[in-house]
């Protein structure tokens, strides 16, 4: 399967906003591609302040959570900051059940995530 773009990247000042393109972050190949594209933001581009926008995401599996945790580690190891935003209630529940809402800095909307970042 060709590695299509799984995230849209936009810059607002020195903040990078990465918006997930997919509605479902479930499929193994898909998750691998998302992981590589996210990690490249830190490892190749050296971006420090990153917001992950979930407005398109309707489904998310535990394998995807694993990638997000790794992303968080990479950003922190690079002295950067990561925020998550626009997570719909069903998906937020996935974070809350696994208590990952405590690990991640989650904001309601993109404007909130940009505020004071």
């Amino acid at each position: 399967m060709a590695a299509g773009r799984r995230i849209d990247v936009e810059e607002v000042g020195d903040v990078t906003i990465a918006t997930f393109v997919d509605k479902k972050i479930l499929d193994e190949n898909n998750i691998q591609q998302i992981g590589s594209q996210l990690f490249a933001l830190v490892e190749e581009d050296g971006r420090k302040r990153i917001i992950l926008d979930f407005s398109n995401v309707e489904y998310l599996s535990s394998a995807a959570l694993g990638k997000l945790i790794t992303m968080d580690k990479k950003v922190k190891a690079n002295s950067g900051k990561l925020r998550l935003c626009s997570i719909r209630p069903d998906i937020y529940e996935v974070f809350a059940i696994t208590k990952l809402n405590k690990l991640f800095d989650i904001k309601d909307a993109q404007e909130d995530a940009l505020q004071g970042f």
Binding site: S61, S62, A63, L65, G66, I69, K73, E93, V94, I97, T98, K99, L100, K102, L103
Partner: peptide, 21 residues
């Protein structure tokens, strides 16, 4: 337990926990 503080960053157990929930 994937929600224990020391396990939060480990990949295992979260799937079963989500199914239960």
């Amino acid at each position: 337990d994937p929600t224990a503080l020391e396990n939060l960053e480990r990949p295992c157990g979260r799937g079963i926990m989500l199914m239960k929930a």
